[in-house]
Computed example of a mutant assay.
Amino acid sequence: MNELRMYVEHLFEGRVLTAEMIELKEEIYGNLVARYEDYVAGGMGEAEALAQAKASITSIDDVLAGEGEDAFEGAASSASEDAEPTAVHASDDDAGESTCEEGAATEGAAATVVQPAPATASTADASDHKSPWLKILAVAAAIIAVILVATVLWNVVLEPTGDQLEDTVEDVVDATVAGDAGQTSNGNNQGTGGGSDAGANTNTSDTPTFSDPEDQREYEATMAVLDEIDAHDPTTLQAYTGDSQPSSVFFENLPLGSYVSTDETGSINAGTFEVYYVNVSEDIDGDAIDRAIVYNAAAAFSAYPNLQRLNVVVHEAYDEHHDADVYAFDRSQLERAFANASGDAVTQFNSSLFESEASWDVVRQQIDRHDFCDHQMDVAERS
C-alpha cells in the first residue's frame, strides 16, 4: 500500500507533525487501507478500489474541522456496504446509480471523519502532566507539615523547658548570693552591736538537692565559680602591679583560671592583651561565666595601668573551635560603667583598689548584679 501511504503523506504536507497529528495520520492511513481491501473483496478492481479509497478523503481540513462524529468508527462497514452494489450491478444504468450511491456514501464518510483518538491522547497527556505536579504538591505539603510540627514542638515544649531550667538555676544562684550577703551583713552587725561574731560564721541554709543529677551538677559547678569570685583575695593581685603587661599566670590566679590556655593567651600589642579560656565546662551557668569575665577584666585593668583593651575568648567544651565567643573590653568604657553603677564610688581602675577588702568590695558589689554584668558582656561581645 505504498501508493496509499504516499497519498496520506501528501494530505499532511505543510503541517506540524505533533504527536496528535501523527496519530491522526496513521489512523487515516489505516482507514483507507481498510476501505481499499473491502472494495477489492467486494469484487472491485484494484485501480478502481484505490481511486475510491482516495476519494473518501480528499482534504485533511475536513477532518480537522470535525464535521461528523462517526467517520472512522464506521469506515470499515461503510466500505463493505459500498462494495456490494458494485459487485452485483446488471446494467450500465445500475452501475451509474451504484456509482452515484457509492460517491454519496463516500462523501458522507469523508464529511463525517473526526479524530476521537487524538482527543483521548490529549486527555491521557493531560493526566500524565497533572500526575507529577500532584506528587510534587503532596511532597511539598508533607515537608511544610513536618516543619510546622517541629517549630511548634520547639517553641512550645523544648525551648520553654530549657529556659525554665536556666531560670531556675539563676534564681537559686541569685538567691544564694543574696542570702550569703545578708548573712555576712547580719554577722557583722552582731559582731559590732552585740559583742559576738558567732552569726558571721553560721550558714543557716543547706545546699539545695536536685532530683536530676544534671541539675545538681550544674548548680554545684555554677556556685563554685561564684564562690571563687566572692572568696578571691584582692591583695594577691598587688604582686603583679609592677608589670606593664599581664601574663597567663595572672589570669590563672583569677576565677576560671583553670581554663586559661597558656598557648593562646598573650599580648597583642603594647596596650592590648588577649586571654583565651578553653574547654569551659558546659555545666557552668552562663550568668556565672559573665560575672567571672567582667570581674577578671576589672582586675586586669586595675593591676596594669598600661592595659587599654582586653580581648577575651571563651571556648566551651564540646564546641567546635570556630564556635568560640569573643569579647573586647575597653578600659574607658568599663570605668564609666562602674562609675555609673556605683554612684562614682569607683571612677578609675588602679592598684589602690587592692589595698583593702572594703575597697575591692565596691567592685565586687557591681559584679554581683546580674543585669550589670549581662549588659557589659553585650557591649563587649564581638561577632
Rank of each mutant, 00 (worst) to 15 (best):
F273P: 00
S59V: 15
Y240W: 15
T112L: 04
Q365K: 12
L256N: 04
S248Q: 13
Y39P: 01
Y7S: 09
A239F: 12
S267A: 14
I28R: 02
G14A: 13
I28M: 05
M1F: 14
S244T: 09
R15S: 14
R369A: 08
L256E: 01
G45H: 14
D287G: 05
S267V: 03
Q183W: 06
G66H: 06
S127E: 09
E355L: 10
P208S: 01
M223R: 09
D263G: 13
L32G: 02
H321S: 14
V177D: 02
A51M: 11
D374H: 07
E3G: 06
D212T: 12
A292V: 03
S281W: 03
D325N: 01
F372P: 01
F250Y: 13
V88Q: 10
V63A: 02
K25H: 15
E252F: 02
D93G: 05
D374F: 12
Y259A: 00
S332D: 12
P255A: 14
F251I: 09
L307I: 09
K135F: 10
E357S: 15
T204R: 08
G242T: 13
L334Q: 15
T58W: 15
D38S: 09
V363H: 00
N201W: 02
A300N: 14
V149N: 09
S267Y: 02
D62A: 05
F273H: 00
E214R: 08
T262C: 11
V275Y: 00
L137C: 10
G68R: 01
S80V: 06
E320V: 06
A358T: 06
P246D: 07
A124S: 06
N306A: 04
S205H: 11
V169M: 00
A145D: 05
E264L: 07
Q238L: 15
D38L: 09
E73S: 10
V313G: 13
Q333C: 10
L32R: 03
P305D: 00
E159S: 05
G343N: 05
E107Q: 11
T222H: 01
E381S: 11
N31G: 14
I22D: 12
V16M: 06
V16T: 12
V157D: 11
I22K: 10
D167S: 15
E26M: 15
I57G: 00
V63E: 00
A337P: 06
D290N: 03
G45C: 08
Y277Q: 04
I367E: 00
V114F: 00
A145C: 12
V63Q: 03
L226C: 10
D174G: 07
A34M: 11
D243A: 14
D287R: 11
S131H: 07
A175Y: 06
H10S: 05
N201V: 03
G108V: 11
N253C: 04
I367V: 13
S247H: 02
T112H: 04
I367K: 00
R382H: 11
D374K: 08
P160T: 04
E335V: 03
S131C: 10
T120C: 08
